[in-house]
Amino acid sequence: MPRAGKRIKGTSDERAEAREQLRAELLAAARSIAAESGGFDGITMRSIADHVGYTVPIVYQYFANKRALLVELVDVGFTELAHHLDRAECPTIQEREGGLLPATAAAYWQFAMADPDLYRLMHTLPEVPFGTAEAPAPARACFEALRRAVTAEAADGNPESREWAHDADAAADLLWAHLHGLVGLVLDGRIKGGGERGRILLGDLTRLFSQPRAPTSR
């Protein structure tokens, strides 16, 4: 791999693979620095270059500026979260957790606790669209996974949760809001009992979505 701007050699496929590997290495370096320094605010293009042993111009060949790198990290984060949520659909995991909804909530929790800095970045980077067609595709995939989870009991005929099937988008929005709120309180140290109690409350949270909604005025 180049260290100071040397040309990547090999076939076109080999060069493309080498470029993707270096791109992934730079993103991984940013995550490592954030974990060591308490977040992404303090990372710089130079610190990333120093971390992997490349010159700064190499980093700029892959990312126009720090924001471009952070936007890609948001995409990476939601891609990883989507994979976690998809794995919750495994029958073995559902059996262990007590169903698709609790399995999905557990997967969400585990992702956030494993990389809190990336999780925060995913939900705080300004001017990243959400709730529209312009939202990052992996974020939309996460929403769909939450939507499937929150309507699963209704689809299975659970009479207490059937009403969610009539407004699945609203149910998914509310589930995401509840999960994000609980995770945020735990990560910020603002909930009694910390992560251990937060994980217990996660089970109570999912049970809320197995109950019928109270009538609302229109």
Rank of each mutant, 00 (worst) to 15 (best):
G5R: 09
K6T: 09
K6L: 03
K9Y: 01
S12I: 10
E14S: 08
Q21M: 08
Q21N: 11
L22N: 01
A28F: 01
R31I: 11
A34Q: 04
A35H: 01
E36S: 10
G38M: 06
F40S: 07
T44M: 02
M45G: 10
R46V: 11
I48E: 04
A49V: 03
P57L: 11
I58T: 15
V59T: 05
Q61L: 09
N65T: 07
V71H: 04
L73E: 12
V74Q: 02
V76S: 04
V76I: 00
F78H: 13
F78P: 00
T79D: 13
T79R: 15
R87N: 14
C90G: 01
E95N: 06
G98D: 03
L100F: 05
P102N: 01
A112T: 04
M113C: 07
M113R: 11
D115P: 00
Y119F: 15
R120W: 09
M122D: 02
V128I: 15
G131M: 08
T132Q: 03
T132S: 15
P136E: 11
P138H: 07
A141P: 02
A141H: 09
C142E: 08
F143Q: 06
T151G: 14
T151F: 00
A152P: 03
N158C: 11
H166W: 13
H166V: 11
D169T: 11
A170C: 04
L175V: 02
W176S: 09
W176C: 03
A177D: 13
L179R: 01
H180D: 14
L182H: 03
G184S: 13
V186A: 15
D188A: 15
D188F: 05
G189I: 13
R190E: 15
I191T: 15
K192S: 10
R197A: 13
L201H: 14
F209L: 08
S210V: 00
A214P: 00
P215E: 05
